[in-house]
Design a protein around this nucleic acid. Structure first.
Lengths: 229, 229
DNA sequence: ATTTTTATTAGACGTCTGATCAATTTCCTT
DNA sequence: AAGGAAATTGATCAGACGTCTAATAAAAAT
């Protein structure tokens, strides 16, 4: 085959690996299966990526950077906005949307499953993919949450972040079960709906908690202007 | 070795398999590794469990039933209680506690990781472990949530359930990352604390939503004590 | 036009895989 | 104490595994 489409072949390998890894994990897929799926000779994978582990990392690298950049860009736009001032739902939206919407496009769903699988893997820390590629973005978002919810203790912000990510991950990775248990009650078909539900739920929860804190400390100090809600 | 500890050997195999499967998944572990970890001859695994898949299922079966029974017993005790009447935090507590506390005891942590891994596996539906062993309990709990929060639309109950399970799973399976990102702000060492945080967060969120519904529908229809779904 | 570099192929390597066998030991029942 | 069932062993099977190497084909550089 011509080498003119060389870049295409390298990409085809990544796409095939992404599909298969997301279904069965790094150990559930053989290099030969990947080669076959990509319509490529086995040795070509080693030529481009070296070992299987390195191929695995390359699959992540291709997708993480665009999503992270979009998330951070959205976040910065929000934080710089003057009116209306940035709110928690905007921050959570910037966290969820680039990811959830990736689901709709090119094999994005596969990639979200891949991430979910990686996070749940005990050997993850050995590979360090999450730590290297995802943690920096996470810290930025947590900081933003602290900024837009100054009344809420930092520990509650952090808990909320982890709960939110957990909910998001489960939703993205096990849509089957959600459908099985909830059927028409939870419509997962439209990304927009899913984002609205999860962002709405968590920002309501966090805002309520912040309001309670505010009124509690207001009560403690003399000028209790009322226990909101 | 004496066959007197025959049942012990069968159990040793299960324990070893549980440890290794939870770390590396069904494909990341070989029968030989399991045999070595259990201090047992390779063929003995096939003797007791047949194929590798069947061993995998047996690992789940051993743990799921006790936890499910405890959950359902707690749930029933709660629902039958007259005063104070059952509240959402009791239901969520019954959902989380038997699982989180399992973490402290015998290799329970490993098992929770195993479940998390299984839920995130696309081939899960083929094996059907989650569907067969976990879904029935899930339905009971969703029904209970609907019962103690009659004002909340069913769809919001379902979303809340999935969010809760997602948060719980992530917390149980990736404690490393939680510590890495939040350090002392999220103390994962005491199970009691973790349960309190997650149960508190979600029951506050759901109760607030229900209260808003109540006042909203109270506003819409005048004295309507609620269009119960 | 010739050399150098980059892509791509075909094949084989030693090792490990899950499964199965007959043979042997241990246990339980009588 | 004998006999049958259950437990355990060591060995072996064909095949799949990831990786490597040498050879070829195409492209780029000179």
């Amino acid at each position: 085959m011509t080498a003119h489409d060389g870049e295409r072949r390298r990409d085809r390998i990544l796409t095939a690996a992404e599909r298969l890894f997301s279904e069965a994990g790094i150990d559930g897929v053989s290099m030969r299966e990947i080669a076959a799926e990509a319509g490529v000779q086995l040795a070509l994978i080693s030529y481009y990526f070296g070992t299987k582990q390195e191929l695995y990392r390359a699959v992540f690298r291709r997708r993480i950077e665009p999503v992270s950049e979009e998330r951070l860009a959205m976040l910065q736009r929000i934080l710089e906005r003057k009116n209306p001032p940035p709110a928690i739902e905007d921050v959570l939206d910037a966290l969820a949307r680039p990811w959830v919407e990736l689901r709709d496009t090119r094999g994005g769903l596969l990639y979200t499953r891949l991430i979910a699988r990686e996070v749940s893997d005990l050997r993850e820390s050995k590979r360090g993919i999450v730590k290297e590629m995802l943690d920096p973005v996470a810290r930025r978002f947590i900081a933003a949450m602290e900024k837009v919810l100054p009344d809420l203790p930092r520990s509650e912000i952090h808990w909320g972040y982890h709960f939110f990510i957990g909910a998001l991950l489960l939703l993205l990775m096990s849509t089957d079960r959600t459908q099985r248990l909830s059927g028409p009650l939870c419509d997962m078909s439209k990304s927009q709906k899913v984002i609205d539900e999860i962002v709405g739920f968590f920002s309501r929860a966090l805002k309520t908690a912040a309001a309670e804190r505010r009124s509690a400390s207001g009560r403690k100090a003399k000028s209790a202007k009322g226990k909101r809600r």
